[in-house]
């Protein structure tokens, strides 16, 4: 059990260009996959996100998964969405997660349940992601529950709290304003949606810098390596994701057997491009179902060894 602060927070504060990865908990009660993926990712990433019933499909809980990641020597980043729990359950789970050693928290709205495998479920959305960030921060400082009741100073959960932002969703002009709200609510780090349209991301970062937000939060650019043309094309159809035509054409032009290789190349180029954009504090590599490729991407992008 990690008693102290978030390791990810320390690295970012020290000015290291951070690398985070992602582990998708299984649709079953087995933890072998989590341990296996942690082993793959822990030496090459500074934190591992545990998705929270991603795309509204029932999976092993992100908090339980975080315990397995800790046991395997990783640095878990718990994802928490607003879809399935009200403020009572969320706070309770945050206390529990902290007591189990989790130190990083990513606050999300959550995919609508109509995308998942329980489309007839009721959704909650008692809070939105901005309110969740605020609540999570206030548990530590000033140390109150959402209703204002105090928490004993020695038992306050002091998470390193982050949020997500999608520079490719709309209204484009509103995205930076909304990011500013998340930062004002207390988001210390931001992991973005997968970036394929680098010029658009650069434009967004310029707006972020103009608003001074990069000085108040750590922005980690999202990287999603595509295994094939089919996978890339599928991503281009996901709401809120933009894949430029030129990139689709590039992948399509590569013979099928070599597309995975091209996917790695595209990801590495994107990481290198992001490193050159002022205000970008790191990358978040989302290689769900392709975790074994993360070490190579990090290495080829020149980001090894990771700081201890």
């Amino acid at each position: 059990m990690s008693a102290g602060r978030s390791r990810l927070e320390c690295l970012l504060e020290q000015g290291h260009f951070a690398v985070t990865g992602e582990v998708g908990p299984p649709q079953g009660a087995g933890a072998e996959g989590i341990r296996h993926h942690t082993a793959l990712l822990k030496g090459v990433t500074d934190g591992q996100n545990l998705t929270d019933n991603q795309t509204a499909i029932v999976r092993l809980s992100s908090i339980a998964a975080a315990v397995h990641v800790l046991a395997a020597g990783g640095e878990p980043i718990i994802q928490m969405t607003c879809r399935d729990r009200n403020r009572i359950a969320m706070q309770s789970d945050l206390l529990g997660a902290y007591s189990l050693g989790a130190r990083n928290l990513l606050c999300l709205t959550g995919d609508h349940q109509s995308f998942g495998n329980h489309a007839t479920a009721r959704n909650v959305f008692d809070l939105d992601s901005v309110q969740l960030v605020k609540m999570a921060r206030e548990l530590a400082d000033p140390g109150i529950f959402q209703n204002g009741d105090p928490i004993a100073a020695e038992h306050r959960p002091r998470f390193f709290v982050g949020a997500a932002e999608n520079p490719f969703a709309e209204p484009f002009a509103f995205r930076v304003r909304r990011l500013a709200k998340k930062v004002a609510a207390g988001a210390r780090f931001i992991q973005t949606q997968a970036i394929f349209d680098l010029p658009r991301f650069a434009r967004w970062m310029e707006m972020v810098r103009d608003a001074g937000l990069d000085r108040n939060t750590y922005i980690l650019g999202g990287i999603c390596p595509a295994k094939s043309f089919g996978a890339l094309r599928h991503m281009s159809t996901v709401p809120g994701m933009v894949v430029p035509e030129a990139l689709l054409a590039r992948m399509k032009g590569v013979e099928r057997k070599k597309q995975a290789e091209e996917g790695v190349k595209i990801a590495v180029e994107a990481v290198q491009e992001l490193r050159r954009i002022p205000g970008v504090a790191g990358v978040h590599i989302m290689a769900i179902m392709w975790e074994e490729m993360v070490p190579r991407i990090v290495e080829e992008a020149g980001l090894l060894p990771r700081p201890l």
Binding site: T109, S114, D128, R178
Partner: peptide, 20 residues
Amino acid sequence: SKSLLNGPCGGSQQGKCEID
């Protein structure tokens, strides 16, 4: 669709909701 009070989620595109 998510009753959000502080702005759009990441699924808003071309003025449309991500669910439909």
